[in-house]
Design a protein around this nucleic acid. Structure first.
Lengths: 205, 205, 205, 205
DNA sequence: CATGAATGAGAATTCATTCAT
DNA sequence: AATGAATGAATTCTCATTCAT
């Protein structure tokens, strides 16, 4: 990578970082492009050399943050001696939840932007070439287990939605229960979902 | 109610209606107060006699829409001969999902505003005096069943979150599955959650 | 006076009082007619039955407050055994300054509105029929002294302007000196002015 | 100074000039920022690149105008052969009064804004670095005279307040006397004040 | 590439005033 | 006489975007 490209990448990341700080402290609507540029120590005009507008930047930001979240969990899983599929899925879920619990700012940011669909696209989509793909990792996981499922996509979808939708209020406001109380129920629900989706021998006949 | 109060209520509802149409077609950010007032056939200034600002109106709107949704489902349940708790809960879930499937505009609106917390407050909160309270209805349902549960609030929370988070993409984009495929899995998951939460005789000893 | 007129007078005074409080706390520009009416426990429309607009009310208010100030000082003078003109003028000046020192809110209000000219009109003008007239009292004072002055109006004018312009900053901010330090200099200046204005026998020849 | 800075200074002055014209013809309250920008041949938004708001501009304007007033008088004094302190002070007072008499618009503007305190700050304060400081000039004047005074600040204060408060009505309305009649009295009063403030040998013993 | 001055459309909000009740 | 809902003009201020340097 050339020195020039390196510099550009740094600027880009500076903008992303500045925007994240501002979006999460003042909200997207109250953050102006001018604010972002100022915080990133650039002139306003420079912003447009890197992003189309505020929402373009936001989408890139969500994708990057969500990807990193899953990536770290998957990396950690590899170091673990777990073999059962259920345990693996629960491990990943737990890892992500713990990350979010330790970074409430990030949790807030992702939750506020769940409805934008960018998160879902990141999960199921291809992402940038060369980037980590959680979907590929998930597919591999199922294959390795040697088990068959009716609808793996639906299974993943339900698990992710259940986690992402329940965690927000629980982590931030301990409502309606604390995280400690939620976790076992959540993991039970995940195990139930996997079980329900499995194609048993009986069905195969 | 005096003639004057009647008139005011009509105006208020006119504003709510106009805002709903605009919010769902152009989005909140691209809807100005001027737009809302114009569509409600009022002067801009009149808006401020009824709502503090756009977001005040939005919150009132979410609460009203969510309440109506639950209210209609509960009313319909009363006409049904179902007796089992699981069946009742699934009936309500199904009724709400069907409402949302038939009113995609409403679904979009509620989904986009899930993270605001207003929906949750409406569900668990008291609401306005004299208004229908879904939470009370739910509590009654559990009592009538004669069964005991570890954490009824958590149970309700998980069910509602699972439904609300999965339906959006499925109803609107048939992704990752069609609604027909989602429903049985969803209802199974709900039944599993209820079962998991029940306090069995064995535990009581 | 009829009961009706009594009621009206009370309302009028209620408006004046409310306006004074608001003008002095938020400033005239930031006080709306609505604010005044609300604070006076009336409907907005009622305001217009008593005053033309905010500035009409303000002018009436200045006149009333200034008049009361001079009136109280003059009344107090009558109880005093002072005979010399200089002493009388200084007594009045001192009394007014003390009033203002004890009512900084009033001082602020009058000072801010000095440039409007209403204060000057009140001093030299006729005022409402039947009301106390300081100018008449002043004229009488000079007559009683048996002395002659080149230009009594100018003398009054200079004295009043000197007092009103110096007191503001001194009383409120003790700048550039404290009131205790200002007073003797001020009273000396006043005595000098009177002396300078007197027509001596020498001049008469 | 770069071309850019030059341009910016011109724009700033254009805004100040436009505002002065409008403030003095329609009053501050009836002058909108839009008016000012239009008259200065700029877009509305440009205003905010130079001033925080209307009142910020006004304060800067008062300071600039008052400074120029004193500066011109001081410059003129240097060309005069007067040696006595009293004569110098009276010369400056007279020069300023003549300036105001010849520029009634300016007189009106400054008078209306006397109560804002900006004028006083300009007089006693440091002002911008590099700008002319009347206070320094005044201090020098006293030193050069070789005489001692009890409270030079108070002396300056009283003189300035007496002048500024009496001139308004006299110049604009010839009330209560004409300027010709006021001047000798005013200058006498000034001389008296200086004399009263001087520390005589007798006191020193 | 980077800058940041300039633009002007447009949003929120306020408020004096009217007028039907 | 009193009310207060309704109006809509007016004002402030922000901000995305452009473009000359």
């Amino acid at each position: 990578m050339g020195k020039l490209d390196e510099k550009k990448k740094l600027k880009r990341e500076s903008l992303l970082g500045a925007a994240f700080t501002l979006f999460t402290s003042k909200g997207i609507n109250d953050t102006s492009i001018s604010d972002i540029a100022k915080r990133a120590n650039m002139a306003k005009g420079t912003f447009y050399l890197y992003f189309k507008d505020k929402f373009d930047l936001r989408d890139k930001l969500i994708a990057a943050k969500a990807n990193a979240l899953f990536h770290r969990a998957a990396e950690e899983l590899e170091k673990q001696p777990v073999t059962e599929l259920e345990d693996k899925v629960v491990f990943i879920a737990d890892h992500i939840i713990n990350q979010l619990n330790g970074d409430k700012i990030l949790l807030k940011f992702l939750s506020k932007n769940l409805s934008s669909g960018v998160f879902r696209n990141t999960l199921f989509g291809q992402g940038e070439a060369g980037e980590y793909s959680f979907y590929d990792g998930y597919t591999l996981l199922l294959e390795q287990s040697g088990r068959k499922f009716h609808n793996p996509d639906l299974m993943l979808y339900m698990i992710v939605e259940l986690i992402s939708s329940t965690c927000y209020s629980v982590i931030l406001y301990q409502h309606p229960v604390t995280l400690d109380k939620l976790k076992p129920e959540l993991y039970n629900a995940i195990r139930d979902m996997i079980k329900r989706q499995e194609i048993t021998d009986g069905e195969m006949l």
